[in-house]
Nucleic acid binder design. Structure first.
Length: 855
DNA sequence: CGAGTGACAA
């Protein structure tokens, strides 16, 4: 190392070692340090070093030179002419190790007691992050110059806690050091970074007391501090009061608005700054582009892009990266890619933005390609990269790629990053591997709220409702307060359970945690109440909301639809249009399904047409499926089949599935076979549709064909989804499967069903034995009687007091016989029975059903 | 000496 050689040769320092100090004027009494803790407090404050070398004449001041700043009481030394040797040496230090090597040499040269050296040393220790060593140098110095304090304060502000910085500032004041403006700028920055408003305000006061209230630097710091504490209004007040405002100050207030979600105001301020003759620089652009993304205006984005090009900012990596981000957030991922490809010297942030851009635009495959390319080019990744890649794997549902990224974590030493671990939990959950997600979650050392949320959502989305609710309770036992995300995960799980008391419980909890005003949470509640059969409660909640999202309207419309209240659904849709809420694809899906459940065929067609004509929404597969369902249920099967033939896109399984379902209802074997064949071409192994086809044959007494379907299923090992029904009783959820005998009350239930059977037969019920074959009529009846739905109803009747409404939920569609039987049961027992099946609600009352036998 | 791009869970 050349520096060491230089030192060992004992160079000639030209005697300029302490020029700044030796010619300084005497220290006024008022500035003397209190050194009560030091036994030598009476020693002269500024001793002249004993190893003084002969002084050269002071160099002439040069007006153009970069001035070496010292307090005004001392002489300015142009740095290019003169530099303190210890300063030169220390400037060559690039690491803590080198610094430690230098110190003995400097002590040996007798420079340790020089102020410039001391200050430089403190500064370097701070720079390398060792405040402890900096303080060890600082503490014993007897005659501390102001700069030493300022340097030490800077160190505390940059490396340590805000408390340490502030208390050091107090000590500095106590020691009689006069604060300079950059003491405040550093402190304000820490207050801002910590969002510590209380301390920020104190510093602000101190700043005023010390006469910096009109200083641009200080006040920019104040503006920034308030903005970072989320008080943009206050920040603007300070900004507005400033007598003069430079570019940095404008940038500060603009990014303040942008970062607090006021993109529009930020953009307006850019216009105003230009009116005041300030040209936006690259930092203005980088600050404003996220605001453009926030507003989502491609037009404004393009004009800012144009400005940047004219101003020559294109070559700045950060500007280009911000452009990539802006374009992809405005939905123009192609343009983002063009800019990305043209960039030279991409940073990891650029790569990350491109990956996230593709993920946000629903192209996880392209995101993974970029990720692959990044690995090929050996760009060093960050946790953000990995999170983006995991998100893409999750959207692809590709566990293998997800596992690959997971393995990469250990090499990157990101295995301890909570955010990354949370992304892993989400990825595995979305890839249907909740088991792995749960393992990661259990092993996670410092679980955050987000970890819990990800885990709860994972369970909820994988149908493991009980675990979702379990974890929700567990997290509260660990004193972790749920937020809106938790609620939005757990409420749909309860909606799936369809149990009213639990619904009310979570609603209460939402109110107690003050989350009831959150649109997403409130929407989830509306949806949940509708799915629990309490559609009117849902509507009350809907009406009480101050703010409604499209999804809120969708939930309510769908709620009416599944309850067979087609008219109410359409009225609400019209109201939505009047309130100028733009319906989306999902809205139309809800509307069409509402029409379908209520037999409103003409209305359905009208809305289907309006979708593209009035709203420019291209019908997707599900919309075609809904139309086939609409025609099919209304027994217009031939029209439905024609409709499928005329579809502009290749019909998928769901469309033929709707057709097959309609054929089952209306007992049409010919079209049913056609639809089934198309389904089995597309997916030969679906259990549900095989059963549906078998049922069609059974209804038509085509037993040989029934047998053929059954054989095919057995050969291929296709499983029929077992039917289940659930009811809630005194905070316990009871699940019944067909023919179950394991329930503690099983004997009682079957006995009760027998007497009940006689009662409803007396009222006119005829068991639909047609759909069962090969066995005696008595056995047929027994088979029908063991359907999960009847078991659940019997159980509820046995265990609730007369007059109580019965709610039950089943996974498949209600079968014809159960539907008919339930009508009679509601009549003879004078009970209201609400059944939620796979598709809709059935309200049984006084011998009729709300679906009007139309399901 | 003050300003600045990406960011986990719906």
């Amino acid at each position: 190392m050349h520096v060491n050689i230089y030192m060992s040769e004992r160079p000639d320092f030209n005697g300029a070692s302490h020029l700044a100090i030796s010619i300084s004027p005497p220290i006024p009494e008022s500035k003397r340090r209190r050194m009560s803790s030091h036994p030598l407090s009476f020693t002269p404050l500024r001793r002249i070093p004993t190893n003084t070398l002969p002084l050269p004449p002071p160099p002439p001041p040069s007006p153009t030179s970069n001035l070496h700043r010292t307090p005004s009481s001392r002489t300015y030394i142009p740095s290019h002419v003169y530099k303190h040797p210890s300063a030169i040496l220390l400037e060559l230090c690039t690491s803590m190790k080198e610094l430690h090597q230098f110190i003995p040499l400097i002590i040996k040269n007798g420079l340790y007691s020089e102020h410039l050296f001391q200050t430089k040393l403190v500064s370097l220790f701070c720079k390398f992050g060792s405040l402890h060593e900096a303080a060890r140098v600082f503490q014993p110095i007897e005659d501390k110059i102001d700069e030493l304090y300022h340097t030490m304060l800077k160190g505390y502000a940059r490396n340590s806690s805000l408390d340490d910085a502030v208390s050091f500032f107090c000590r500095m004041r106590y020691d009689g050091v006069r604060p300079v403006v950059y003491n405040f700028t550093y402190l304000l920055k820490v207050c801002g970074d910590n969002a510590d408003l209380r301390k920020g305000k104190e510093i602000h006061c101190q700043l005023i007391v010390n006469g910096f209230a009109s200083n641009v630097f200080a006040m920019t710091g104040v503006v920034n501090m308030y903005a970072k504490c989320r008080l943009v209004e206050e920040a603007y007040k300070m900004f507005d009061r400033m007598p003069e405002r430079d570019l940095v100050c404008w940038n500060t207030i603009i990014s303040g608005y942008a970062q607090n979600g006021f993109g529009k105001t930020a953009l307006e301020l850019v216009l105003r700054m230009q009116e005041e003759g300030k040209r936006p620089d690259s930092i203005t652009i980088v600050s404003i582009l996220p605001a453009v993304a926030d507003v989502g205006s491609l037009r404004i984005g393009r004009s800012i892009h144009g400005y940047s090009m004219r101003a020559g900012f294109e070559s700045f990596v950060n500007v280009s990266t911000a452009l990539v981000d802006m374009y992809s957030k405005c939905g123009s991922v192609g343009t983002a890619r063009l800019i990305f490809d043209r960039m030279t010297g991409k940073t990891v942030v650029s790569w990350n933005s491109m990956i996230d851009g593709y993920v946000q635009n629903g192209d996880p495959g392209a995101a993974m390609e970029i990720f692959q390319k990044m690995m090929d080019e050996q760009v060093e990744m960050t946790n953000v990269t990995v999170m983006g890649a995991l998100h893409a794997c999750a959207d692809l549902g590709d566990v293998e790629q997800g596992r690959f990224v997971h393995k990469l974590l250990d090499q990157l030493e990101l295995g301890s990053d909570v955010s990354v671990m949370n992304s892993l939990i989400s990825m595995y959950s979305k890839c249907k591997r909740v088991d792995i997600a749960a393992e990661i979650f259990e092993n996670l050392q410092h679980k955050t709220l987000v970890s819990w949320n990800a885990m709860i959502l994972g369970y909820a989305q994988n149908g493991r409702i009980n675990e979702a609710i379990d974890y929700f309770c567990k997290m509260q036992l660990q004193n972790i307060k749920p937020d809106s995300f938790t609620m939005v995960s757990v409420i749909p799980a309860l909606a799936e359970l369809s149990v009213l008391p639990q619904a009310k419980w979570i609603h209460g909890l939402v109110i107690r945690t003050c989350l009831d005003k959150n649109v997403f949470v409130a929407t989830a509640l509306v949806d949940m109440y509708a799915k629990c059969g309490a559609v009117h409660t849902a509507r009350k909640l809907f009406d009480m909301m101050d703010e409604r999202h499209v999804t809120t309207w969708n939930a309510m419309i769908d709620g009416y639809g599944t309850h067979g209240l087609g008219k109410a659904a359409l009225e609400l849709f019209e109201k939505m249009k009047k309130e100028v809420i733009k319906p989306n694809e999902v809205t139309f899906l809800c509307v069409l399904s509402a029409c379908s459940h209520s037999g409103l065929v003409e209305e359905g067609f009208q809305y289907f047409g309006s979708m593209k004509k009035d709203y420019g929404l291209e019908p997707a597969m599900d919309h075609y499926g809904a139309m086939v369902d609409l025609l099919g249920r209304a027994n217009r099967l031939n029209e439905a089949w024609d409709f499928i033939q005329k579809m502009p896109i290749e019909p998928a399984i769901s469309v033929f599935g709707a057709m097959l379902g309609a054929c089952r209802i209306h007992k049409n074997v010919e079209l049913g076979e056609k639809a089934a064949n198309r389904i089995f071409d597309l997916d030969p192994d679906d259990g549900g549709y095989h059963v549906l086809l078998a049922n069609i044959y059974a209804t038509a007494s085509m037993w040989d064909k029934v047998a053929r379907v059954r054989t095919t299923m057995e050969k291929k090992g296709i499983q029929k989804t077992p039917g289940w029904s659930v009811v809630e009783l005194q905070n316990e959820v009871h699940t019944f499967y067909s023919g179950t005998t394991s329930h503690p009350q099983a004997k009682k239930i079957y006995a009760f069903l027998e007497t009940l059977g006689n009662r409803i037969k007396a009222a006119g019920y005829m068991p639909d034995t047609n759909s069962v074959h090969d066995v005696e009529d008595v056995v047929k009846e027994q088979l029908l009687n063991s359907h999960s739905e009847k078991l659940a109803i019997a159980f509820s009747l046995l265990n609730t007091s007369p007059g109580t409404t019965i709610h039950l939920r089943k996974n498949l569609r209600v079968c014809g016989d159960c539907h008919n039987a339930t009508k009679y049961i509601s009549l003879v027992t004078k009970r209201e029975i609400i059944v939620r099946d796979m598709r809709r609600f059935h309200h049984f009352k006084d011998g009729t059903c709300s679906c009007g036998d139309y399901w």
